[in-house]
Write a protein that binds this DNA or RNA. Structure first.
Lengths: 106, 106
DNA sequence: ATTTTGCGAAACCGATTAGTTGCATATATA
DNA sequence: TATATATGCAACTAATCGGTTTCGCAAAAT
């Protein structure tokens, strides 16, 4: 049971579920309708997403509404930050090359 | 063989390798020195990272230097974009609440 | 009160995964 | 030329994964 965010978003079905419930809470049945798989399978995915706190539940009678814990998604963004510095630097370097080329044209 | 970026960064060792070679190219042996695993195991991880183009190789005599393909990392950032809109909206809503509280204080 | 509906949990199964061990190959070095 | 070094690759193994089937429970509908 590794159960961290990166392992959670590794599965394409789970990524699709995340996108699906990002804007509005949905029940497992409603979610399953969107995929070619069983409710139980979706239920399993939701358990994994819940365990790593990417998703939160809200019981309403016998129905359970699942919605995205957007804050948790920021952790992926935070991890990307270390590389963002690098690709921004690379971009600046390309920028320099381009402006040098322009100058040479003149 | 799924081999997409999300599956590639799911493994903690692979994430560590990515961070390690982000700033400077390294050989498999040098990389393996940083982990409690064998060189062959690192070699396997590098193969997976290379296959999904997150990493590029540069042969130098009998040594092979591996370095990060920063551009590819942007694809994760691109996927995050759809959620970025949401969490920015949430932040703005919190902003409104805070400014309302300030007004009420006055 | 009985049936239907919405759900999670457990047991099972085939596929995949990460890691190890044992090679083979190519490039240095003595 | 013989040896040491750097590496990738294939075969194997235990663990994990995603999916299905079956079950039990609680809430709603009849």
């Amino acid at each position: 049971m590794r159960r961290d965010i990166f392992q959670a978003i590794a599965d394409p079905t789970r990524r699709a579920i995340i996108t699906l419930i990002a804007l509005q809470a949905m029940t497992p049945n409603a979610i399953a309708d969107n995929f070619h798989t069983t409710r139980q399978s979706v239920s399993k995915h939701l358990r994994i997403l819940t365990e790593c706190e990417l998703v939160k539940q809200e019981q309403q009678g016998r129905e359970i509404y699942y919605s995205l814990e957007v804050e948790k998604m920021k952790e992926i963004d935070k991890w990307l930050n270390q590389f963002r510095k690098i690709w921004e630097t690379r971009f600046n370097q390309l920028d320099k090359v381009l402006s040098t080329m322009k100058k040479q044209k003149k």
